[in-house]
């Protein structure tokens, strides 16, 4: 709490007290993981591996960033993986035909459209976010299958692949993209009217409504943004793997939720932030990379991930319970 007086002006929403615990505990976790892996595997501290981890973490962050904002309002967006898959298919099909610009537009627009529909169903249709976005998951997923008819698109132009596989100096482009997005979203959350509404709705929806905030409009904007960010992540993903098929987004939802939780954002809303999700994504990427280097069987990997997520949330509950508070 004392940190609030020292923090620079303006960062005065839900970050200071809770974040102190989260940041310290996560930094300790990262240092511990890196130390253990550096000792246990000779390959871990090689340049190639670190580039790999940073790219993996960046992509994970792009996927989880929109979800973070939704979770801060006290909602959930289960459709992000499916939207990513649909956006990837639509844009890849245009990009391989040489329409790079329209490919990019289609990814962002399809994500935006799906998110807007989810948000409208949640606010004006009064459907719980869990159900509305679960329905959207299957719709986006189904549209992707129909569109692709089982085909796989591969071989994207090099100019486009730059955003997923390129380097600026020694730094992978996805890392630069992720850092830029992190800064932009952090500013949005703490310095704009929309960001203030996001924390207020997550903290006390009734207070937000009674204060005269246009809560429904703000929520639609949040889900639309979440969808659009999934579309954006799709572009980086297909540029990296140089291919797209309709199953691309299938396994991306649960790791994204894990990254948000690991980052200390409360699933009840109002507490946490985008920087936490960046840290959470890095931890997730480190752990997966470490398990691969150490030859941990895939069967065990899922169990280990689950245990890590539970441990982090439990630590926040116990270590930060006074700060997180009850509602």
């Amino acid at each position: 709490m004392r940190a609030s007086a020292a923090s620079p002006h303006g960062g005065l929403t839900a970050k200071v007290d809770h974040t102190l615990f989260v940041v310290v505990s996560r930094l300790v976790a990262i240092i511990a993981i890196v130390t253990v892996l550096a000792i246990a595997s000779p390959h871990f501290l090689t340049w190639g591996n670190l580039v790999n981890v940073s790219r993996q973490a960046s992509l994970q962050f792009l996927i989880a960033s929109g979800l973070t904002i939704v979770v801060l309002t006290g909602g959930i967006d289960l459709a992000i993986g499916a939207i990513l898959g649909l956006a990837a298919c639509l844009s890849a099909s245009l990009i391989v035909q040489g329409h790079v610009f329209w490919g990019i537009v289609s990814a962002l627009a399809s994500g935006l459209a799906c998110g807007t529909v989810s948000g409208t169903l949640i606010t004006y249709g009064r459907i719980p976010a869990f159900i509305a976005t679960y329905g959207m998951l299957w719709i986006a997923h189904g549209l992707g299958y129909v569109f692709m008819e089982g085909e796989v698109i591969y071989g994207l132009p090099d100019a486009f692949r730059f955003i997923g596989a390129g380097f600026v100096g020694p730094v992978p482009v996805p890392v630069i993209v992720a850092v830029a997005l992190l800064v932009a979203l952090h500013v949005m959350l703490h310095r704009t009217v929309l960001g203030r509404a996001i924390y207020a709705i997550g903290g006390n929806p009734a207070a937000a409504r009674l204060s005269g905030m246009p809560v429904r409009r703000r929520l639609i904007a949040v889900y639309a943004l979440s969808g659009m960010l999934a579309g954006f992540a799709a572009l980086v993903a297909i540029a990296r793997v140089n291919a797209a098929d309709s199953s691309l987004g299938e396994d991306l939802l649960l790791p994204a939720i894990a990254a948000v939780c690991l980052g200390g954002t409360s699933l009840f809303g109002g507490v946490g932030g985008i920087a936490g999700t960046a840290i959470g994504s890095l931890i997730l990427a480190l752990v997966v990379n470490g398990m691969n280097l150490l030859g941990v069987e895939t069967f065990w990997q899922n169990g280990v991930m689950g245990a890590i997520i539970l441990a982090s949330v439990l630590a926040d509950q116990l270590g930060g319970s006074r700060l997180i508070g009850k509602r």
Binding site: T13, A14, Y199, G203, S211, G212, G270, V271
Partner: peptide, 13 residues
């Protein structure tokens, strides 16, 4: 909104 500070609450909405 418990998770916000005093100015944010005074000017909420």
């Amino acid at each position: 909104a418990d998770n916000l500070d005093v100015p944010a609450n005074v000017f909420l909405g």
